[in-house]
């Protein structure tokens, strides 16, 4: 019986727990990816870009809900990806900086496709988190995750005559 207990402990510690720990990671990754996709989509359908930025800054439900699922979100950042009509050139600006005239929908290099890109460093914890040790087995795995959604409102604000994407 003593031998069996020892084997059992070794089995649980070195086979069972790591298997469960590594098995839960893809599930948590999918949860994190799903939530980030949802946030990126919500940002992309905002009327103005400032509203999209505000949505990211003020809405903490997604980071809180991910924390409850064992995913710690650090440094969430949003940017605007601008791709030209041929897909040849791609540029990126932070969500709160203005687009230059040549990058606007009626710009000289246009037309463009605009995408909101949300990136974050995510620490995905295993089910039994020892806090240190082998990432994925006993400690969180750090991943740089990103999600994109196409910017929807390409109209102009009649009050200011600026493009909504640049407000």
């Amino acid at each position: 019986m003593t031998e069996f207990s020892g084997a059992m402990i070794i089995f649980i510690l070195f086979i069972f727990a790591p298997l469960i720990n590594i098995g839960i990671l893809p599930v948590r990754y999918l949860i994190a990816h799903g939530v980030m996709t949802e946030i990126a989509h919500r940002m992309s359908v905002c009327e103005k870009r400032s509203a999209a930025n505000q949505l990211l800054q003020t809405n903490t439900w997604w980071t809180n809900s991910l924390a409850a699922c064992g995913v710690k979100v650090k440094n969430p950042k949003a940017s605007l990806i601008i791709v030209d009509k041929d897909g040849g050139s791609k540029s990126s600006i932070t969500i709160n900086s203005a687009l230059t005239a040549d990058l606007l929908p009626n710009g000289s290099r246009g037309p463009f496709m605009y995408c909101v890109q949300l990136t974050a460093d995510c620490d995905i914890s295993p089910l039994f988190n020892a806090g240190a040790g082998l990432p994925g087995f006993t400690s969180p795995v750090s991943l740089h995750m990103s999600s994109q959604a196409q910017w929807e409102n390409l109209g102009r604000d009649p009050e200011t005559t600026f493009y909504y994407i640049n407000e």
């Binding site: 919500r42 409102n153 390409l154 109209g155 009649p158």
Partner: peptide, 19 residues
């Protein structure tokens, strides 16, 4: 209806449900 602004027509687009 969204007006044309400086000859720019607002394309059909997805919006937030709350609006």
């Amino acid at each position: 209806l969204a007006p044309p602004v400086e000859k720019t027509v607002s394309p059909a687009h997805i919006s937030l449900a709350k609006s």
